[in-house]
Design a binder for these strands. Structure first.
Lengths: 153, 153
DNA sequence: CCGACATTGGTGACACGTCAACATGTTGTT
DNA sequence: AACAACATGTTGACGTGTCACCAATGTCGG
């Protein structure tokens, strides 16, 4: 094994800052969403691709791929949203194993009412304070991290 | 109100990449920790400041401040960890409302066994692919975001 | 066609996180 | 001392996320 390579001072500061952003940004966005629209981050994540889809219908498999969720997580979230009338589930014609998720009118109304405030909040906390050069660095670094994770299996 | 200022193409790409990093990095680190040490991210977050404290004892209020958690979240997590023998709770001498959290020998053994592999994983996914200039940008941007959230109340 | 294998989705159990409500103790004002 | 206001921590309920497992269906080689 050998001596572990601990993080140096700068690295530790960056890592702590990342963890804090993770925590604070997630909870700030969640609070804003719940307060202004009664939606959670999880609701919002699914409503966006659904509202952009043809007829507001997406197959579960496809929806999971679009948001990067595992099937179980998706199934639980859809069940909760179905109970609140935001979506319905239908059988899939082409593949009897499959399941289609359909946005209800209430679901569409919810996302349309929530989106402007949510985007405005993301903008206020993140992008209004970000230069073009910084955005470029973030984009590059984030994708590199994703590649390194994916390369790992 | 006026027309909402939607994210432009670059901003949307950066935001999607951030959300993906949030998801993938969190779950990759959690899997590595659970697999190699039987600890969760939440366990690890508390064990670090505890193991660095004098005698492995920290007052709950202080522990919450160190990791940036609310009291309820901390209380639940400490209860779970106490049940598994990683920490114990004691009464606080100076303030009868307070509560002290003490690292057990098993808790210390767990964090000491987990830390090298965890740091190695963070390094592999993040810092080994990061230049000094990029680290500086991340540090600056993350702290700016935190400031903007804090300024909001 | 048949049987092994993979894909898709759902379920129950449990860990994690947040909120509101509560109990208790401390502090500051009068 | 008496009281209000605040600080600290716990609890229960519920939404969220993961894992292991199951059931149903599809696919492909024989």
């Amino acid at each position: 094994m050998g001596e572990p390579r601990w993080l140096d001072e700068r690295e530790a500061r960056v890592w702590q800052a990342y963890l804090a952003v993770d925590r604070e940004l997630h909870s700030a966005l969640e609070r804003q969403l719940v307060r202004d629209s009664g939606l959670s981050n999880a609701d919002y994540a699914l409503l966006v691709p659904l509202s952009e889809a043809e007829d507001g219908v997406v197959r579960s498999r496809e929806l999971g791929a679009l948001v990067g969720w595992e099937r179980s997580r998706l199934s639980h979230q859809v069940a909760r949203m179905e109970k609140r009338g935001l979506v319905t589930r239908e059988e899939c014609v082409e593949d009897a194993r499959g399941s289609m998720v359909r946005l209800t009118p209430a679901g569409r109304a919810a996302i349309e009412s929530a989106a402007p405030g949510h985007v405005e909040t993301v903008r206020r906390y993140v992008f209004d304070g970000l230069s073009a050069e910084e955005a470029e660095v973030l984009d590059r670094v984030f994708h590199r991290v994703l590649d390194r994770i994916a390369a790992d299996g």
